[in-house]
Protein backbone atom coordinates (compact mmCIF):
# COMPACT_ATOMS: atom_id res chain seq x y z
CA UNK A 1 0.00 0.00 0.00
CA UNK A 2 1.33 3.43 -0.95
CA UNK A 3 0.75 6.23 1.50
CA UNK A 4 0.80 9.80 0.19
CA UNK A 5 1.01 12.92 2.29
CA UNK A 6 0.21 16.29 0.81
CA UNK A 7 1.98 19.29 2.29
CA UNK A 8 0.36 22.57 1.26
CA UNK A 9 2.59 25.59 0.86
CA UNK A 10 0.89 27.27 3.83
CA UNK A 11 2.15 24.50 6.12
CA UNK A 12 5.83 25.14 5.36
CA UNK A 13 5.85 28.76 4.19
CA UNK A 14 6.90 30.14 7.57
CA UNK A 15 9.35 27.38 8.47
CA UNK A 16 13.11 27.81 8.32
CA UNK A 17 14.92 25.68 5.75
CA UNK A 18 16.19 23.40 8.53
CA UNK A 19 12.66 22.87 9.91
CA UNK A 20 11.22 22.32 6.43
CA UNK A 21 13.84 19.68 5.61
CA UNK A 22 13.44 17.99 9.01
CA UNK A 23 9.70 17.76 8.44
CA UNK A 24 10.06 16.30 4.95
CA UNK A 25 12.67 13.76 6.10
CA UNK A 26 10.57 12.71 9.09
CA UNK A 27 7.66 11.90 6.78
CA UNK A 28 9.85 10.12 4.21
CA UNK A 29 11.43 8.01 6.96
CA UNK A 30 7.89 7.07 7.91
CA UNK A 31 7.55 5.44 4.48
CA UNK A 32 5.26 8.04 2.99
CA UNK A 33 5.45 9.75 -0.37
CA UNK A 34 5.26 13.51 -0.04
CA UNK A 35 3.54 15.82 -2.48
CA UNK A 36 4.87 19.24 -1.53
CA UNK A 37 3.17 22.27 -3.01
CA UNK A 38 5.89 24.49 -4.46
CA UNK A 39 9.59 23.85 -4.92
CA UNK A 40 12.53 23.77 -2.58
CA UNK A 41 15.23 26.36 -3.22
CA UNK A 42 18.57 25.03 -4.58
CA UNK A 43 20.09 25.54 -1.11
CA UNK A 44 17.24 23.56 0.49
CA UNK A 45 17.67 20.78 -2.06
CA UNK A 46 21.34 20.36 -1.15
CA UNK A 47 20.50 20.60 2.55
CA UNK A 48 17.96 17.81 1.99
CA UNK A 49 20.62 15.67 0.29
CA UNK A 50 23.10 16.33 3.13
CA UNK A 51 20.57 15.48 5.84
CA UNK A 52 19.41 12.42 3.89
CA UNK A 53 22.98 11.12 3.71
CA UNK A 54 23.45 11.68 7.44
CA UNK A 55 20.27 9.71 8.14
CA UNK A 56 21.02 6.65 6.01
CA UNK A 57 21.10 3.49 8.08
CA UNK A 58 20.02 -0.16 7.96
CA UNK A 59 16.37 0.76 7.35
CA UNK A 60 16.48 4.12 5.61
CA UNK A 61 18.27 3.98 2.23
CA UNK A 62 17.68 7.54 1.09
CA UNK A 63 15.12 9.33 -1.05
CA UNK A 64 13.98 9.94 -4.58
CA UNK A 65 13.04 13.51 -5.39
CA UNK A 66 11.62 15.32 -8.37
CA UNK A 67 10.50 18.93 -8.77
CA UNK A 68 8.32 20.25 -11.53
CA UNK A 69 7.17 23.71 -12.48
CA UNK A 70 8.83 27.07 -12.08
CA UNK A 71 12.11 27.12 -10.24
CA UNK A 72 12.96 29.49 -7.41
CA UNK A 73 14.51 32.68 -8.67
CA UNK A 74 16.77 35.27 -7.08
CA UNK A 75 15.52 37.93 -9.47
CA UNK A 76 13.67 40.34 -7.18
CA UNK A 77 11.35 41.70 -9.90
CA UNK A 78 10.34 38.17 -10.93
CA UNK A 79 9.76 37.22 -7.29
CA UNK A 80 7.55 40.26 -6.72
CA UNK A 81 5.58 39.54 -9.90
CA UNK A 82 5.13 35.90 -8.94
CA UNK A 83 4.15 36.80 -5.37
CA UNK A 84 1.58 39.29 -6.62
CA UNK A 85 0.11 36.78 -9.06
CA UNK A 86 -0.10 34.16 -6.32
CA UNK A 87 -1.79 36.64 -3.98
CA UNK A 88 -4.34 37.70 -6.60
CA UNK A 89 -5.09 34.15 -7.72
CA UNK A 90 -5.13 32.81 -4.18
CA UNK A 91 -2.63 30.04 -4.84
CA UNK A 92 0.18 29.08 -2.47
CA UNK A 93 3.24 28.45 -4.61
CA UNK A 94 4.05 27.45 -8.15
CA UNK A 95 5.42 24.04 -8.98
CA UNK A 96 5.35 20.80 -7.06
CA UNK A 97 7.91 18.53 -5.44
CA UNK A 98 7.59 14.79 -5.05
CA UNK A 99 9.78 13.19 -2.41
CA UNK A 100 9.66 9.58 -1.33
CA UNK A 101 11.73 6.97 0.43
CA UNK A 102 14.06 4.97 -1.84
CA UNK A 103 12.73 1.80 -0.22
CA UNK A 104 9.38 2.47 -1.94
CA UNK A 105 10.22 4.56 -4.99
CA UNK A 106 12.56 2.77 -7.35
CA UNK A 107 12.97 5.66 -9.74
CA UNK A 108 11.36 8.91 -10.78
CA UNK A 109 11.75 9.44 -14.50
CA UNK A 110 11.23 12.97 -15.63
CA UNK A 111 10.93 14.38 -19.08
CA UNK A 112 10.16 18.01 -19.54
CA UNK A 113 6.40 17.36 -19.64
CA UNK A 114 5.76 14.17 -17.72
CA UNK A 115 6.77 12.27 -14.62
CA UNK A 116 6.87 8.50 -14.25
CA UNK A 117 7.05 7.22 -10.71
CA UNK A 118 8.27 3.63 -10.56
CA UNK A 119 7.62 1.94 -7.26
CA UNK A 120 9.08 -1.20 -5.74
CA UNK A 121 6.91 -4.10 -4.63
CA UNK A 122 5.86 -3.07 -1.15
CA UNK A 123 3.84 -5.17 1.26
Amino acid sequence: MLRLQIIPHSEVANLTSESKISKVLRIAKNNRIILLEGRLSPEEETLLIERTMSNIDRRFKGIEICSIGDSETRDLVKRIKRGLAQFLLGVGASGMTIIGPASIIKEIKRDPDKIELLTKNVK
Binding site: P42, E72, R110
Partner: peptide, 17 residues
Protein backbone atom coordinates in the same frame (compact mmCIF):
# COMPACT_ATOMS: atom_id res chain seq x y z
CA UNK B 1 21.53 8.86 -19.36
CA UNK B 2 18.40 11.00 -18.93
CA UNK B 3 19.69 14.52 -18.13
CA UNK B 4 16.46 15.54 -16.36
CA UNK B 5 17.50 13.69 -13.19
CA UNK B 6 16.87 15.83 -10.11
CA UNK B 7 20.48 15.46 -8.95
CA UNK B 8 21.66 17.24 -12.11
CA UNK B 9 19.05 19.96 -11.66
CA UNK B 10 20.04 20.41 -8.01
CA UNK B 11 23.77 20.66 -8.72
CA UNK B 12 23.34 23.14 -11.56
CA UNK B 13 20.71 25.14 -9.63
CA UNK B 14 23.10 25.43 -6.69
CA UNK B 15 25.99 26.60 -8.83
CA UNK B 16 23.73 29.19 -10.48
CA UNK B 17 22.60 30.41 -7.06
Amino acid sequence: ENPYDQVNVTIIGNLAA
